[in-house]
Write a protein that binds this DNA or RNA. Sequence first.
DNA 1: ATGAATCCCTGACTATGGTCAGGTATTCTG
DNA 2: CAGAATACCTGACCATAGTCAGGGATTCAT
Lengths: 299, 299
Amino acid sequence: MKHDPVARIRRFNRAVTAEVGALDDSFLGRGRSLGAARVLNAIGHGIADVAALRAYLNLDSGLTSRLLRGLESEGLVETRTDPADARRRLLSLTAQGEAEYAAYEQLSDDRVRDLLRRHPKPDALLAAMDLVATALARDRIEMVEMDPRAADAVHCLQSYYAELARRFSQGFDVSLSRDPEATAMIRPRGSFIVAVSDGLPIGCAGLKGDGGKVAEIKRMWVAPEARGLGLARQMMSRLEADAAELGVEVLRLDTNSALPEAVALYRNSGWTEIERFNDDPYPDHFFEKRIDARDGAPA
Amino acid sequence: MKHDPVARIRRFNRAVTAEVGALDDSFLGRGRSLGAARVLNAIGHGIADVAALRAYLNLDSGLTSRLLRGLESEGLVETRTDPADARRRLLSLTAQGEAEYAAYEQLSDDRVRDLLRRHPKPDALLAAMDLVATALARDRIEMVEMDPRAADAVHCLQSYYAELARRFSQGFDVSLSRDPEATAMIRPRGSFIVAVSDGLPIGCAGLKGDGGKVAEIKRMWVAPEARGLGLARQMMSRLEADAAELGVEVLRLDTNSALPEAVALYRNSGWTEIERFNDDPYPDHFFEKRIDARDGAPA
DNA sequence: ATGAATCCCTGACTATGGTCAGGTATTCTG
DNA sequence: CAGAATACCTGACCATAGTCAGGGATTCAT
């Protein structure tokens, strides 16, 4: 078969390899080796010491030193010993290094913008790229606990509200819903989890507590390109563990039949349907789950 | 902005680079350098002489020779001089080479199958990959004239029929439509064009003639992931040139209002709407275009 | 305070990919 | 048929990426 999945993915690989190669070549056009360019970029991206640089680029210690010496002698990078630990060395770009870094960024930005500008459906292209990137990097998805007011969290919450507005026939207005105050989803009262795939936030879920034995799960959302990977379940079990740690014994949540995937998830992961427990206008399904107190850290 | 298009595409690049790198590493696990592995694979894929190999892998003549000598001394590749031109050398795999080639194929197939098997929506993933690959390779789309019974052409035609069946409220049955005989779309009576992006056929269009001054455009189709790139227009102008070469003076075509993109294309590219000229049950719009006789090759 | 661990460096070495200048055999062109 | 062009090869050379052993400075642990 000529148009089977394997042939299609190989075609994808060839296209993408050619693209990456072309970008590398344009980097080479700036007269520096790829290794040196990668180091310069890493430092520009905020890698601040030699150990972090080695880990980030997966380089041998000797090679790292040599590349750094090269960039130093070009006047692009400065090193100084870490005042906190004189064995360590801190890295920074000189003014000239910043300029070179900006030039590299420009090269890659130009390619990206050109690709998008020339495409008839840039949004569809971006969505497709997100889908592929998430699929390829699915083993490297991280669950990060953060303040729900942090940028990545806000990004997820806004996507969540936008999706509700799309799905609910009557629309959705956050102010009408019982918006949990941020501090109720921060320790010691609760917690907030964001699923991050290589820097891009692709899902969130919050545990809203008041210090008592009952807490609520709120704001469960997974980006469209990441659905089906079991992320909701993972975030949920993470929140259950957090709840156990915080001494919570009963979890509750409300949801809406316009979100059938969510209702199905709760039904088959140990939740029992209960009576309405609030007067929020949007939800029409209510669930409860009793959790085992685990060996959580004492408050 | 953190979630802007540039950041998303860079994330895509990182994910894909990591994937390509991992595949290269697994190739390296077979104890051969990447260059040698690439040569072995190219020969396995049917590259049959040294010049084609150089062009395909974009290698220097000296390097090519050295890699070939290496593979020869390992007993994986055989070379013999081309009987038709004794300066040329023909390449082939030995039995052992075939086995090694199959092992490399297996490595890459395994990764692909694993990716698809683990993904919740393999069809969506493949469609996304096709979209990205087509966007990246859009400058390398080829217009190939071929027999409408060739595999790539048949693939396009079947996709076309399937799409009509989906779009027409009454469905679509090829046998009811005036299916042009293949030979009417082959020179000297007509021609058939397939748009190919790195091996994948992504569009087709046929010129159906009878040797006279009037011919018809038939079977214009563009794959969903390639729409908006101007392919239909390109194929059309190619067919017009072919028609001029074949001495055709008037082109006609029929189409259906369920295909508004097509109707719009014809309206704004020099076609005039005319009366129904056949009794095919499906079309409801009919167009005509007078073409200039060019300096086409005399039949 | 002393030995172990760490961080980073240097110097020696290797494999690989890549370039370049010929060189030989063959084919094409007029 | 002579000279130009083509196809492939060899040998010399280079830059880069990468490995490895060891060494100096510093910090940690007991």
